[in-house]
Amino acid sequence: MTATPSARAVSQYATTTGNLTARMALHAYGTNPQGWFAWLGERLPLAGDVLEVGAGTGELWRRVDRPATGLRLTLTDFSPAMCDRLREVPGARVQRCDATHLPYADAAFDTVIANHMLYHLDDPDAALVEFARVLRPGGRLAVAVNGRDHLAELDALGPVIDRFDLAVGSHQNDVTAETTPARIAAHFADVTVERYPDELAVPAVEPVLAYLASMVGPLTAAQESAARDMVQARIEADGAFRVRKHTVLISAVRGSR
C-alpha cells in the first residue's frame, strides 16, 4: 500500500536531519548565483511576529540577515530531530506541533511562511485554514512549492536503479506550482506567483548518489553502479549532470474577514 504523505515524512524526517541535509546539499550546484534562501529572504516581510511552519533545520534563518529589532520569530516542525536543530537558531521560539493544529491564538502573527512543506501533509487545505486563522488581518502568507517537472532528471533515475518510488510525486499529495495558487486563493486575497530561476549543473556523480540514498535508503552495489554509469555518461556528454528546477513562491494576504 502506498504510504500517505505524512507517513512518508515521518519515515524521512522524524529521527534524522540527514536526509533533508543531503537534498539541500545538491542545490549548491544551482546555476543562479543568488541561492534560494537569499532570493526568498528578499521577498519575505521580516518584521513583527513571524511564524515559519515546517521549518526543518532552520536553514533559512542561517542564510538570511534578520533585522536587529522588530522581528519576533517562531519556528515549528512535527519532527523532534528538526526541532532540536531549530533550537540552535538564536532568538527563535521553537514549538513541535502539527501544521494543521497550530497551538497559537487567532491573529497572533504578521507573517506565516511555509517553505517546501505543504506537500508533506495529508490535508494541506486544513493547514491553509490554520495559517489564515493565526494571521492578523492584512498579514502576509509566503508558500514555496515545486512544479510537476521539478527535478525530473533525478526522478528518471528511479527505473535505472529499479526504484520507481524515487519520483517525488509518488509519495506526496497534489500540492504543486500548478495547483496551489487556486488552493490559496480560496482562503486569502492578492495571490501572486513568482518563479525562482535556476537549474542544477552537478559536475560529479557523488552528490547525485547521496541524493538517491536520501530518498530510497542505502543503494546496493548494483544500484550504485547503474546510477553511476548513467550520471557519468551525462557529465561526459554535457559537462555536468543537468537537472531542471521548477520552484515558485506564492504570496498572499489575509483578508479582513
Rank of each mutant, 00 (worst) to 15 (best):
H27F: 14
T179V: 03
E130R: 02
T31P: 03
V168H: 15
A156F: 08
S11I: 12
A226Y: 12
V208N: 05
H120C: 11
T220K: 04
T16C: 02
V202W: 07
M230L: 15
V216F: 06
A47L: 11
G18P: 04
F188E: 02
E178K: 03
T69P: 01
T15I: 11
F164R: 15
G255K: 00
Q34F: 06
D49N: 14
D65F: 01
A68W: 04
V94Q: 04
E178C: 04
R96E: 15
L219H: 03
L60F: 11
F188A: 00
T31L: 09
T179E: 05
R183F: 05
I184S: 00
A3N: 14
S79P: 12
D49C: 12
P159M: 06
S170C: 06
V202M: 08
C83F: 14
F131N: 00
D165R: 08
R23C: 02
T16P: 01
P90K: 07
N146P: 02
R23A: 00
M117S: 03
D238P: 02
H246A: 14
N19L: 08
R62N: 11
V94M: 04
T2Q: 14
A25T: 11
A240P: 14
M82T: 11
A7S: 11
A186W: 05
A55G: 02
T17Q: 09
A185N: 06
R254D: 02
G239F: 03
L20H: 03
H150D: 15
N173A: 03
A92S: 10
V89P: 01
A185C: 02
A22C: 09
P33D: 09
V10F: 13
N115Y: 08
V231K: 05
G138N: 07
L128S: 01
T4R: 12
D84P: 04
V129R: 01
P218H: 06
A14K: 14
G58Y: 07
W36H: 10
L118K: 00
E224S: 10
Q34C: 09
R148S: 11
A105Q: 14
V50P: 07
V53I: 12
V248P: 06
P207Y: 12
N115M: 08
Q172E: 13
A99S: 05
V129W: 00
F109D: 08
T76N: 01
A156Q: 08
T176W: 09
L219N: 01
E194D: 14
I113L: 11
D122P: 00
K245W: 07
T247A: 13
P197K: 06
P197F: 09
R257P: 13
T69N: 07
E42V: 04
N173H: 03
Y119L: 09
I161G: 05
V193G: 02
E236G: 08
N146Q: 11
H187T: 02
P207Q: 10
D198F: 07
G139L: 03
E130Y: 03
